[in-house]
Design a protein around this nucleic acid. Structure first.
Lengths: 111, 111
DNA sequence: GCAATAGTTAAGTAAATGCTTCAGTGTTGA
DNA sequence: TCAACACTGAAGCATTTACTTAACTATTGC
């Protein structure tokens, strides 16, 4: 479910916007209401809700409404999925470089 | 330089597009020319070049032209920067959860 | 030289994105 | 009860994005 490419797509899409990353950043320090998320952002509450809906659709953020307050929190599993994608590609590249280094070292020995 | 928020912005922006992620994925397995990058993608070469320019501007990919061939490779440092941003937020959240768990355990002891 | 190759650039276009405002809904506290 | 509060949703709009085609430049191999 978390490695569903469509979900990964939504996640990276969600992380691409500075305002949404700022919201994730805020939430990494603890849960917050929509108003609290909106407070440092120079945009209408409505815009924040639209960003929030996208973050929720991507799986990065989970929210629950109690009374009239929607409380938001990070879903670390989703963050881990994005992290994992990047990490795999980087490691793949670095392992390749290592093998290349070994090969060069070997051929040097043989000279 | 790598933690420059503007650069981070470009990186996440670059990773948001499926075609560009596919290009990064391809490059994680080794260097490639523009044509080789274009080959599995259902779009014109011109479109690929535009994606590639974005990837290069973001710092995720480095390219060098020899003769008429532009060879592309991943810049792992940039990937690491994006990875790091996500990782920090996730850890911050998880540490918070841990502290909360400790607190709950303690108050339970006291009951 | 010259055709094929590899890539680049510009201009145009359709769709997606990131807002806005405004008019709601449901909740709470005095 | 009723005003303030915390959001929500729809419509509209300007900008950006992801392409396309077409014309172009620079290399290479014969």
């Amino acid at each position: 479910m978390l490695h569903d490419p469509a979900q990964l797509d939504l996640m990276f899409q969600a992380l691409a916007d500075p305002a949404r990353r700022q919201m994730v950043d805020r939430l990494s320090r603890g849960p917050a209401s929509v108003s609290q998320l909106a407070e440092p952002l120079a945009m209408s509450m409505s815009a924040v809700v639209q960003h929030l809906n996208l973050l929720e659709a991507s799986g990065l953020v989970r929210t629950q409404k109690v009374g009239r307050v929607r409380t938001c929190q990070i879903e670390p599993k989703a963050l881990r999925a994005a992290e994992h994608w990047i990490n795999e590609r980087r490691l793949s590249w670095e392992r390749r470089l290592d093998r290349l280094g070994d090969f060069l070292a070997e051929t040097k020995d043989e000279s």
